[in-house]
Design a protein around this nucleic acid. Sequence first.
DNA 1: CTAGTTTGCGCACTCGAGTGTGCAATAAGG
DNA 2: CCTTATTGCACACTCGAGTGCGCAAACTAG
Lengths: 341, 341
Amino acid sequence: MFLNEKEKSMNEGMSLKELAETIGVSRTTVSRVIAGHAQKYRISKTMEQKVRLAAERYGLVRNEVAHNLRMQKTDTVALMIPEVDNPFFSHLAHVVEHRLRESGRMVLLCSSSEDSAIERQVLSMIRGRQIDGLLVAPVGTESTHFKALERSPVVFVDRYLEDLAIPYVTTDNRRGGFLGAQYLIERGHREIAIIQGLPEAVSNQDRVVGISQVLSQLDKAIEVVGHGFTIENGHESTLRLLDKETRPTAIFTLGNQVALGAMQAIQSRGLRIPDDISLISFDDQPYFALTCPPLTAVKQPIDLIAESAVQMLLARLESSPVSSKRIHPHIVERKSVSQVS
Amino acid sequence: MFLNEKEKSMNEGMSLKELAETIGVSRTTVSRVIAGHAQKYRISKTMEQKVRLAAERYGLVRNEVAHNLRMQKTDTVALMIPEVDNPFFSHLAHVVEHRLRESGRMVLLCSSSEDSAIERQVLSMIRGRQIDGLLVAPVGTESTHFKALERSPVVFVDRYLEDLAIPYVTTDNRRGGFLGAQYLIERGHREIAIIQGLPEAVSNQDRVVGISQVLSQLDKAIEVVGHGFTIENGHESTLRLLDKETRPTAIFTLGNQVALGAMQAIQSRGLRIPDDISLISFDDQPYFALTCPPLTAVKQPIDLIAESAVQMLLARLESSPVSSKRIHPHIVERKSVSQVS
DNA sequence: CTAGTTTGCGCACTCGAGTGTGCAATAAGG
DNA sequence: CCTTATTGCACACTCGAGTGCGCAAACTAG
């Protein structure tokens, strides 16, 4: 597009090659002036001005594809996340896009739909596209298809694969799990149910580990149910929990969408939060302050995670050494957890 | 990346050129086999098999940049939206990415941050990148920088510029505004305040027009305040409304984030919805069902909008004729609007 | 006015893949 | 067995921009 119009006459869009022809100089010269190498290649001031003016006048638009081929880079970074429409990831994408644009790069948006097969498919689609780097939240724990990328500028974000030499930025999920569980324990809860997101996701696993560290001190075995960072999972898992003979006194959901589903389910059963049952969730979102009741949550500093990940990737692009980061979450206390006597 | 490793020995990633050299045939032949043109160019079955096997064995990865240069297309579509982290747009992006991937294309994610200057900057960044098409929700009403794209495969989504010959898919915002206002009127509301999103956005303007059609029948002049599809705008505008001597009996917010801010503000003043004041919002979101109280909203069929836009773009890529679409919204009734006597 | 230096610019190559055409080797026909 | 058709493959070009190097013209110096 953009260049296949017939009306070349209008001042929009003329390739470097065409411009060279219209002003009657070689492409070489134009290329050098545009690249700012005029001095280096001893282009006369006169000629330089001539080219500059013409570029301005005719609206020079360099063919980036050709440029990319020659330069062996594309100023493009791929961002692969499980679902764009999970607020956690959409915010992440927002910050990433913003920061990368500031650095003159563009973002290729890839979604794995939490499906390892799609992840592999997408990976093969971006292979060969000569992207400069990759930011990815891997779906599962399978590391084979990332193995070949260990020496490439890749940074894991939110999730990671420990057995690979690929740096990552993530919430300290164990600590988050720990904090959340502790919060419940301190308020007298003993019958605590965990509704997890995707069991395969490392972030999820770490959250569960953190929670276990607290709950294992109790006699009770921890109950972890559910499958998927979705509203549906939250809804169905909660219904199942509520139907049991001994209902938990508190539910800890491990994802913002899961919490939404849980709330729906609890309300649909005519129960009240936190009077009848308490609810706390991992991953705080703005609207948690407005739900009924406002939800207490373990907040992940998404902006910080996203910016660190971009910084790290930019560092890797310059071959600077980087080291993985776990960022501390904290509890945002609202009104969804009651004190149990 | 992906190819700059030294260990070519491992079966990951060998370019067409390299593969040709390793099996001792010309690149031409490999290229033709891979492109499926074996028959057309009379490549022998034997040779074809040989190439196919080698491709499989060595893990052929074609250099897409070179391919793109030669083919004058990139199988990439740019999606330019104001903010990725507005749930409306993140869902839109989700569907778009999904559908385009199914068609073998990738998505270049661009954000304009509701800023016309950034929009222009981004537009110039994708110019020359030889993208196949563009899906865009334009920021304002300025059409000059899109003028040059009239004959290119561009589709406006959610917002549009009527004076350009560029097709669009959008909610029928006038009708949505009409429905929402009518809903309030029918329930006895007369003092209605509108908190708009961005006044420059066509979608917003149309909503206001639709509302006016209903409210102009009343004696009252319509009160439209606010600026921006943000939580902050919702919050501040609402506070200002609440501080007036005659408080409106109902507020109609023209964006999902605006509604969130409005709720916060109302609650912070110790007022209750819908007893003290009613609230209805444009653009329904899943969590609206869980707020306190559940919010009544004018729902836009985002999936339908996104899919239509993609369909339309794919049609344009095949030079099929397309015509713009306005999709009907409808009211999702919940509990945030009271009957006023 | 000539020898040497500097300045200014463009040729011809590169990046990696796709394609029209030509040239051998083989097969078919008489 | 020789001619003609057919098959099989690769040369050399293309896409558009970047770059080493060389060759003229202009300038300086002797």
